[in-house]
Write a protein that binds this DNA or RNA. Structure first.
Length: 334
RNA sequence: AGGCCCGUAGCUCAGUUGGAAGAGCGUCCGACUCCAAAUCGGAAGGCCGGGGGUUCGAGCCCUCCCGGGCCUGCCA
């Protein structure tokens, strides 16, 4: 039985619909039923070279996006990682029960480091900090996608090793699978997951202007036309996926069914599909964008983050206060 | 601490003896397409890492600095 879930998200500046349908929407749905902690992980963000001003803005912007998308800072403990410095202390301690061998097997490190000329040691030990993020709150559930499973497994391994060395203390966090494992693909390259780093044409930003979204959806890769009975090409399947996720919320599932039927008999015009995707997507995004505008002009987000950090820190301090004597650190413990 | 290599467009790089800064990919616009892709046509994009010097003239030579990579050594 999962009792507390932890989610982290990097302050990349803005959310795209892959983040929204894949993660954020599930978080928002979950917060009513289960104790939820969401952390904007700025310590993680600095593992690669990033401009300080950009980072600060991106962090605030990400928080605003999340709240606009339905994360309720009253229900969910929403905060910025570096406002709770206990993350780094636990990170250090856990780093000392983590082997270099385990870390060097992380595919994400190999991936990211191959794209950097300057490879920081922080990038290498990133998964340790991630384990600390989760374990600091003794979260037993982590809603992660497939790409993070390896890191989550390492977190469990780290928890296990800590427990066996210092005594049973941390729960081993389990993967929480969302109701719908949405995995939105890039519009320009539908064989790759949607990501911001791949370039402008690859993603649709949740907060993007309507004209820009229409253009991007219309430019999505499809195929050269299929015979009826053929399987969908990746690009078309992706558009249907986005349409399905959107109509789930708008309730206009008949649109989806019609287009599916058209596809089945081979009479679907992709421009029609794209128009529908755009329309339904905007139904979802419009209210989110409006909410964001209000939030931004209110200037309340900073205060929300501060009070979130206060709540998080109470939990974090308690954990650290227990960990230190277990390990034998400090003078203020017997 | 010593030695070697590197820094030019968003990315990967070329650049002749020192003589008008280039290519490929990507991006943007157009044609084609139901929409896209591919293809074709067009365009934008540069403090040549930074300062100083030599020269009529420096991406290129000298010098210092910054940044990155590799090798050796030293200390803990």
């Amino acid at each position: 039985m999962i009792t507390r879930v932890f989610s982290g998200i990097q302050p990349t500046g803005t959310l795209h619909i892959g983040n929204y349908f894949g993660a954020v929407r599930n978080w928002a749905a979950m917060q009513d039923d289960i104790e939820s902690i969401i952390c904007i992980v700025d310590y993680h963000a600095i593992t690669i070279d990033v401009d300080p001003t950009t980072l600060r803005q991106a962090t605030l912007s990400m928080a605003t996006d999340l709240i606009a998308c339905g994360i309720d800072p009253e229900k969910t403990v929403l905060f910025v990682q570096s406002d709770v410095p206990e993350h780094t202390e636990l990170g250090w301690i856990l780093g000392c029960v983590t082997s270099i061998g385990d870390l060097s097997r992380m595919t994400q490190f190999k991936d990211k480091s191959s794209k950097q000329s300057f490879i920081s040691s922080g990038l290498f030990t990133y998964p340790v900090l991630q384990a600390a993020d989760i374990l600091l709150y003794k979260a037993d559930g982590v809603p992660v996608g497939e790409d993070q499973i390896q890191h989550l497994e390492l977190s469990r391994r780290i928890a296990r090793r800590f427990n066996s060395r210092f005594g049973e203390f941390f729960p081993e966090p389990q993967q929480v699978v969302g109701e719908k494992g949405a995995r939105i693909m890039s519009l320009s390259d539908p064989t790759a997951k949607m990501s911001k780093s791949a370039g402008e044409t690859h993603y649709v930003g949740v907060m993007e202007p309507e004209t820009s979204i229409r253009k991007k959806v219309r430019s999505a890769v499809t195929d050269m036309g299929l015979e009826s009975g053929d399987a969908m090409s990746p690009g078309v399947a992706n558009l249907f996926e986005i349409l399905e996720l959107s109509t789930e919320s708008t309730g206009q599932t008949d649109i989806l069914e019609n287009l599916r039927a058209n596809f089945a008999v081979g009479s679907l015009m992709y421009s029609t599909l794209k128009d529908a995707v755009f329309e339904q997507l905007m139904e979802i995004l419009r209210p989110i964008q409006e909410k964001r505008a209000k939030l931004e002009s209110s200037g309340d987000v900073i205060d929300m983050l501060r009070s979130g950090a206060k709540r998080a820190r109470i939990m974090a301090k308690e954990t650290i206060a227990q960990v230190r004597p277990l390990v034998g650190l400090g003078t203020d413990n017997p």
